[in-house]
Structure formats: structure tokens, C-alpha cells
Design a protein around this nucleic acid. Structure first.
Lengths: 242, 242
DNA sequence: GGAAAAAGTTTGGTAATACCATTAAGCTAT
DNA sequence: ATAGCTTAATGGTATTACCAAACTTTTTCC
């Protein structure tokens, strides 16, 4: 294992920022590839010419940015991480929580995303994916008919349908935004499955949507998407006035 | 100023995580309102029963999450911040950089977002906003005609047009996604303004788009949006084969 | 000889302390 | 009154020491 000496001594006064930026740049520059280990904290301390505390704070920043993960023990250390959407979704969720955004705005946003994704999924998705989507929608219908309602199971199924649809676009950005939106949005989705009548209608509607996607009928699919959000709005209104 | 004693001693072994979560929960719980000051590091150290180092690392995490900001000196400290979209945009940008996503996917994503936003902006934007948009588009045209091309100025103008358009939807989520996309996307936008012919066409097209938005003609506006992305694709292709 | 146990080593995590730099408030002399 | 000085509070950094986890090496014992 040969060490890499690529870091410069840190500026005094804002050493933490300096260090984290230098390491971030090195990662972006592929000096350290995903899975690779950064030098140990004590080694970095020497290279940057600082105390270990600031090195640790800098690494915390990178960890929060989801660029590295740390392992304890011998042969442990900070390892460069493959980029994932997790942290972005989390920060979006934080934002939504703190801002307490009007539910109608969330619905509006999500409906528009859903429409776009649906159209793309029809044109870019493979036949296999479309069939799988339809099967999963049928599966949701049967889950719903079950005696013991398991909300976690239902939520999981609904979530999978959405993610699968997003993946059919072959565009990772839509997958990302769908995951992010699911993350900060699940409470409203659950509402639809809480009451028997809505639950039934929603599941049927998913089946119809998937069917039209499978048949390559974008306008009809969009109609069902529209109906889904009609139901959601109705359902939330009902809850509000009770 | 009365102190708040709401924190419990931190778990040993993962004190940093524990502390940051406790403080985050307190902020979400409105124990500390935006603008309010958290206890000083030395005070937190006492309340959590830990060393100052872990308190600092925990605060770094919260700073990275954009929940607090710090000021030095007397009457300084960690202050709860109003939630902003900045950090989310930044993390998306990081994600895009690290993943090196196909430019075509970025364009596809952005074009779909632009279409949605445009339609909403026409129906929700005020007359004043629409006029301002048009004026800003005209302004961009005149900037372009200038002898000394200032790419920073042009980029800023283009960015402002996009953000203004997003704000016209009255939906903070669209503003957020537009900022995020701008953040991780600017390099491609610049391409359009680098060469004289594209620069001219793009600015004219912005003017036309804004005009149709002002006139309340969604289909025509969408046509111009489409043309914008035709130009962008052409421009990037030209660059690739040179 | 081989497996189990013990010791050693590396590395992140925490603690305690001291000192520096910055900032605001209060005080003092003019 | 105001310019300048002093003081205190607070974040930022450095140093040192020790703990805890996880891997490696050595020793022990059957």
C-alpha cells in the first residue's frame, strides 16, 4: 500500500472547510475511487499540518455529504462511497418538514412528475417491465382484499410500483426525484389506503393505469393518473373536515 | 435569557449522532425557533455530559444539514437557520457530478420540468410577474448584443429567468427543483451562450417564450421551450464532434 | 500439527485542557 | 460625545491521553 501525498497544508482560521474541500476535490478528481480508503486520521493530520480535531470535523462534513463512510478498528478508516440518492431524499424531507409545505402544493408537484414519468415509461420501458408493473398492480389489489390489513405491506407495494415506473424512464433523475418525493410524502399516500372505499378504488385505479401503460395508451394512462389524484384530494379533504 | 435544559446525557459510543439528533429534534419541535441561539458549545458540553469535541462534531453535522449557522465572538454561537433550498441543491449537484450522468438524461429531465413549470406559470403567475419576465428576457437580449461578452453576467441573467419562472408557479417545490437543476447543470447552459449564433438564437427564443407566457398562450410557449432544447442538443453535439 | 486463546497493533471515538482569534459590550480618558 | 482601550464570551485550533473495536500475530495447550 503506497500512500498518496496530494494534500496541501490547511489554511489556518478555516481549516475544517479547507480540508473537507481538498478531500472532496480529490474524490471528484478520482484520486480516490469508490471503495478506496482515505489515509487515517493521524496520517491526514500530518499531511494537512493540523490537529486531529479539525480533520475529524472535516471528515464529518464529508460523511454528512454522503461521500465517505467510516469503519472502526484495524484496517478501518474512511472509505469513499458510491453516490446514492439517500442523503438528497433525506435533506428534501428535512426541508419539507421544517417548511410545513401546503399539502396541495405537494400533490400538485407530484401529479406533474407522475404525468411526465408515465409518458416516458410508456415510450422507454421494456415489455417485460410493463408486464411486471401490471403484475405488481394486480398483486396490490389482492393484498388489499386480505382480511388483515397490513399498512406496511401496502405502503411497500405502492412504493415499489412508483419506483418501478420511474425506472422504466431509463433516466436516473426521475428515479431520484421519485425516491425523494416518496420519502417526504408517505404520510399522504397512506391516507388513501386507510379507508376501505378509497383503498379499493385506488388499487383498481393502479391496475387500470398499469394496463394502459402495458397497452401503450398514454392518454388513457394519464386519465387514470388524474383520477388517482382526484381520489387523494377527496380523501384528504374528508379527513380535514372530520 | 433563561437557559433551556432539554437535553439528556449522550449515549457513549455514538455520542455525536445522539447529540445531533437530539438537537435536530428540538429544532423540529420548535424548542428553538429560527434565529434563536443554541446554548454555547461549553454549555452543551455540560448538558450532554461529553467532551467539547463531540459537541463540535455534532454541530458540524447540523451545519451541513443547513439547520444552523455559527458566528464567532462575544454574543456569537450557533443560530437556528430558516430552511433554504441551498443545501439540497448542493447535494444534488454533488450526486450528479459523482455519477457523471449522461447529458441527454439531464436535458430530458430539465425539458420536462420546464414544460410543467411553464404551463403552471401561465395559469398561476401574476401579470406583474409575467411582465417582469418579459422585461428580463429583453434585457438578456441587449446584454448579448454587447461588445464585451461577460459570461458571468449572461449566466446570471439566464438563471434569474428560470428562477422567476419557477416562482410564478407559487409552488416552492418547483422553485427548489429549478435551483437544484441550475446548480448541477450550469456548464451545459453556458454552452448555448458561448458561440455567437447560438447566443443570439437562444436570447431571441427566451424573448419569444416570455412573450407567449405574457399573452397566456401555453401551446406556443411550449413550442419555444422545445426549440430551446433543440438548440441545446445541437450545440452540445457540435461541441462533441470538434 | 492444529485449533483455540491471548497478546499486540491499527484506527476511529471520546475526554480534558490550553491557547488563539474574533467580536461585542463596557469603560475611560480626552 | 467620541475615539480608543479593556474585558469577557465564544467559536476555532492544537495537544495529549486513553478507550473501544476490529484485525493480525503470537503463544498456548491439547
Amino acid at each position: 500500500m503506497e500512500a498518496k501525498y496530494i494534500f496541501k497544508r490547511a489554511m489556518h482560521g478555516r481549516a475544517v472547510e479547507d480540508i473537507s474541500l481538498q478531500i472532496e476535490a480529490a474524490i471528484m478528481n478520482k484520486d480516490f475511487l469508490p471503495g478506496e480508503k482515505l489515509p487515517s486520521e493521524r496520517e491526514l493530520q500530518l499531511q494537512f499540518g493540523t490537529g486531529r480535531g479539525v480533520v475529524r470535523e472535516a471528515l464529518k462534513v464529508l460523511k454528512q455529504k454522503d461521500l465517505i463512510e467510516t469503519k472502526k478498528g484495524a484496517r478501518g478508516g474512511a472509505f469513499v462511497k458510491e453516490a446514492e440518492v439517500g442523503k438528497i431524499s433525506e435533506s428534501l424531507s428535512l426541508f419539507l418538514k421544517q417548511k410545513q409545505i401546503d399539502p396541495e402544493k405537494l400533490i400538485e408537484f407530484r401529479e406533474s412528475i407522475d404525468q411526465t414519468i408515465t409518458v416516458l415509461a410508456i415510450s422507454k420501458g421494456s415489455l417485460n417491465e410493463k408486464q411486471e408493473l401490471y403484475e405488481k398492480a394486480v398483486e396490490l389489489s389482492t393484498i388489499i382484499l386480505n382480511e388483515n390489513i397490513d399498512m406496511n405491506l401496502i405502503g411497500e407495494a405502492d412504493r415499489n410500483l412508483n419506483i418501478l415506473l420511474a425506472k422504466m424512464t431509463k433516466n436516473p433523475l426521475f428515479v431520484w426525484i421519485m425516491e425523494a418525493v416518496q420519502f417526504g410524502f408517505s404520510s399522504y399516500d397512506y391516507a388513501l389506503y386507510e379507508k376501505e372505499n378509497f383503498r379499493r378504488l385506488t388499487a383498481d385505479n393502479w391496475k387500470n393505469t398499469a394496463f394502459e401503460i402495458l397497452n401503450g395508451e398514454p392518454m388513457k394512462a394519464l386519465s387514470y393518473i388524474g383520477y388517482h389524484y382526484c381520489l387523494l384530494r377527496e380523501c384528504i379533504n374528508e379527513k380535514k373536515y372530520k
